[in-house]
């Protein structure tokens, strides 16, 4: 497998650290060197949060440069768009079609970008965008794991690692009582990827 850099972007409290941990663990189990950066503290109080995970033969920096991320995993639409410049040309994004208005938008002082504007921005940078339909009810707590299911089934990861490699890493990191919820979320994402077409509406 070639070197891969992932970026996760969303809002504090959405489970970005856990999803990044799973991704890092999968890379480790695939025999890669792995580094992961994360953000703690103030930003976790509802601010924009990002994390990067890098798999490689030898990874020096836990941070990648803008324009060098292979796969962007968006937990929220605005935060995915905010980090679009990290994607390399030809990179891929999977984005939860979930809109969380930031304070200025909630107060009616700024506009939230349209999905069509978002699609245009990704296309302009030569990146492929796949929307993910946000899971309903309690399942939304596992949206990050559903996103990982999707990522696991797109190139270049499709076929590279069996579902068990992902689920084993997941089970290592979530408490036993939440394993079933997370397993369902992962499978939903993985199945949706197999059926969906990039850039053609939510999968």
């Amino acid at each position: 497998m070639r070197d891969l850099s992932f970026m996760l972007a969303g809002v504090g409290g959405q489970g970005i650290i856990l999803a990044g941990d799973v991704l890092a663990e999968v890379g480790l189990r695939a025999g890669r060197d792995v580094k992961k950066s994360e953000v703690h503290g103030m930003a976790q109080r509802g601010g924009g949060v990002t994390s990067q995970v890098r798999w490689g033969r030898h990874v020096y920096s836990p941070l990648a440069e803008p324009g060098r991320i292979d796969i962007l995993i968006g937990f929220e639409v605005l935060e995915a768009l905010r980090n679009v410049h990290y994607l390399r040309s030809g990179g891929q994004a999977v984005v939860n079609r979930y809109h969380l208005p930031p304070p200025a938008v909630a107060a009616g002082e700024a506009a939230y970008p349209d999905d069509t504007d978002v699609e245009r921005e990704f296309a302009a940078r030569g990146a492929t965008l796949r929307w993910m339909c946000p899971p309903p009810g309690i399942e939304r707590l596992a949206a990050g794991v559903q996103l990982l299911g999707l990522v696991s089934a797109i190139e270049p990861l499709r076929g590279a690692l069996p579902a068990e490699a992902w689920l084993d890493a997941l089970y290592r990191l979530v408490p036993p009582v939440h394993q079933e919820l997370n397993r369902r979320a992962f499978q939903r994402g993985r199945t949706a990827a197999a059926n969906g077409t990039p850039g053609r509406g939510a999968v």
Binding site: V11, G12, M42, A43, Q44, R45, G46, G47, G48, E65, P66, G67, L78, E79, L81, R82, V84, H85, Y86, P102, P103, A104, V105, A110, A111, Y112, P113, E121, R125
Partner: peptide, 19 residues
């Protein structure tokens, strides 16, 4: 090698807030 990619323009900020 190439221009550093510019960030998407003029997006509303998302500062941390009280829960």
């Amino acid at each position: 090698e190439s221009e550093e990619p510019a960030a998407a323009l003029q997006l509303p900020a998302r500062p941390p807030v009280l829960c």
